Amino acid sequence: MSTHTSALAGAGVSLWLDDLSRERLTSGSLAALIEDKDASGVTTNPSIFAAALSQGESYAVQVAELAAAGADVDTAVVEITTRDVADACDVFAGVAAATDGVDGRVSIEVDPRLAHDTAGTVAQAKELFAKVAKDNVLIKIPATPEGLPAISEVLAAGISVNVTLIFDLERYRAVVNAFLVGLEKAKAAGLDLSKIHSVASFFVSRVDAEIDGRLEAIGTEEALALRGKAGLANARLAYQVFEESIDSERWATLADAGARPQRPLWASTGVKNPAYPDTLYVDGLVAPGTVNTMPEKTLDAVADHGGDGTDTVSGSYEASDAVLDALAALGIDYDEVVSKLESEGVEKFDVAWAELLENLQASLDAARGEA
Rank of each mutant, 00 (worst) to 15 (best):
V137M: 11
A119K: 14
R105H: 04
R173P: 00
D168W: 10
G158K: 06
K187D: 15
D192Q: 05
G120H: 12
A150Y: 07
A133Q: 06
V176S: 13
T144G: 14
A71S: 14
E153F: 04
K187P: 08
D72Y: 13
K185R: 15
A88S: 07
E79K: 10
T118L: 01
E153P: 07
T144L: 13
V73P: 05
I108F: 02
D117E: 05
A200K: 13
L148S: 12
D117G: 08
A115M: 04
L183E: 07
T82V: 01
V78L: 14
V122H: 08
A157S: 14
A69S: 15
D84W: 12
N136I: 04
G147Q: 03
E109K: 08
A188P: 02
V132T: 03
A157Y: 04
V175I: 04
D135C: 01
V106E: 10
K185H: 14
E79G: 02
L169M: 01
N162Y: 01
N162G: 05
L193S: 02
N162P: 01
G94P: 09
K134L: 03
D117Q: 02
R173W: 04
N162W: 05
D72A: 08
T82R: 09
I141H: 07
A93F: 08
P112W: 10
V110F: 05
E170S: 14
F179A: 05
A150D: 00
K195Y: 03
A123Y: 07
K126N: 08
E184T: 14
G147N: 11
K140P: 01
A200M: 14
D72L: 04
V110Q: 05
D100S: 15
D87H: 11
D117C: 07
V102I: 15
V176H: 12
L114Y: 02
S198L: 05
L169W: 02
T118W: 10
N136K: 03
H116T: 08
V110L: 06
A178Q: 10
L165T: 02
L114M: 10
V106C: 11
I141F: 10
Y172A: 13
E146T: 05
A68T: 12
D87W: 12
A178E: 02
I166A: 03
I80C: 02
A96W: 11
T82D: 03
S152G: 08
A188Q: 12
G70A: 04
I141R: 07
I139F: 08
Q124L: 05
